[in-house]
Simulated assay, not measured.
Amino acid sequence: MRRSFLFALLVIGSSSLMAQSITGIWRGKRTQGAQGCFPEYFLELHITWANDNSLMGNAYSYVDTKQFTKINFTGRYNPLNKRMVITENAVLQYSVPANCIPCIKTYDLTWSKNGALEVLLGDWKGHEMGNNNVCPPGKITLNREKTPTFPVDVYQNDTLMNLQKNLKLQERQKEVVQTVVIDTSVIKIELYDNAEIDDDTVSIFLNNSLLLHKKRLTDRPLTFQFNAFPNTEYELMMYAENLGRIPPNTSLMVITAGKKRYEVRLSSSEQKSAVVKFKYTQ
């Protein structure tokens, strides 16, 4: 029993370590068979890994930065055989020649490492956007990269995305309270009322993406986490929806990044919004 338990711990530990290494920017080439729009494309994947080994992110297929498709995806990663299957879902943006139709693709990729070089290799297949016509399939070769060609998005669920479209925020000055340099990709945020609980209500934005909307600060934390990409700056803003009974709107932010813990006190008003910046360096 003891041996089995220790073996399970080793598997879980190694699986988590391997899966965590998948988060990041992957860029390289995607080929396409005859009858395709181009025989070869650049491909950039922004992959975010979750604790259950699920994957999500955006895929950019491009000839150059003016001719591209941006498609979000979900997927699964198996840390035992180092294989992932990624399925594209919705076309978010595209700018392609008039005679080309974006392909909705499925990727079958395997992770490998040789020294410092990390590679994803595999195949893809798919169908044309708007119909079931099969796209000529091809091969994929990607390397891990430190910087993206395209901007890295912050994930929002559909409810928050649709809610933000109709928000009308007041113009307020941003006050940077602290810049936190982190060395891990998973960041946990907890927000408490910093003084007397007086019905302070806030909305939280990360890189202008709404993550919390009109939430009341109490002695119990508002908790969320996000996955940071290397060499990418993140700006977390606390927007005061009201000032409570005792202005201004104040909170205690507790940041957990790996083994490190930070406490930051924030104050927002009708004139300014408190901002904390993050940068993940490897």
Rank of each mutant, 00 (worst) to 15 (best):
L6T: 00
A8T: 12
A8H: 13
L10I: 09
I12K: 15
S15Q: 03
M18D: 00
S21K: 15
I22E: 01
G28L: 05
G33R: 07
L43R: 14
H46A: 14
N53P: 02
K66G: 14
I71W: 07
T74S: 15
G75W: 04
Y77V: 01
N78E: 00
N78S: 11
R83C: 10
E88R: 03
N89S: 12
P97K: 15
P97F: 05
C100V: 05
I101L: 05
C103S: 14
I104F: 01
T106V: 10
D108I: 14
L109F: 07
L109K: 07
W111S: 02
G115Q: 10
L117T: 13
E118A: 14
K125L: 15
M129Y: 09
N131V: 06
N132P: 03
P136V: 03
P137G: 12
T141S: 11
L142C: 09
R144M: 12
T147M: 12
P148N: 11
F150I: 06
V152D: 03
Y155Q: 08
N157Y: 10
D158C: 13
M161D: 09
K165G: 02
L167H: 09
Q170V: 04
Q173G: 08
E175F: 12
V176I: 15
T179N: 13
I182E: 11
I182Y: 01
S185K: 07
D193N: 13
N194F: 12
E196Q: 14
D199M: 12
D200A: 15
K214I: 00
R216C: 09
D219S: 14
F229E: 04
L236A: 01
L243S: 10
P247I: 03
T250P: 06
G258R: 11
Y262Q: 09
V264Y: 03
R265M: 08
S267F: 09
S273C: 10
S273M: 03
T281D: 08
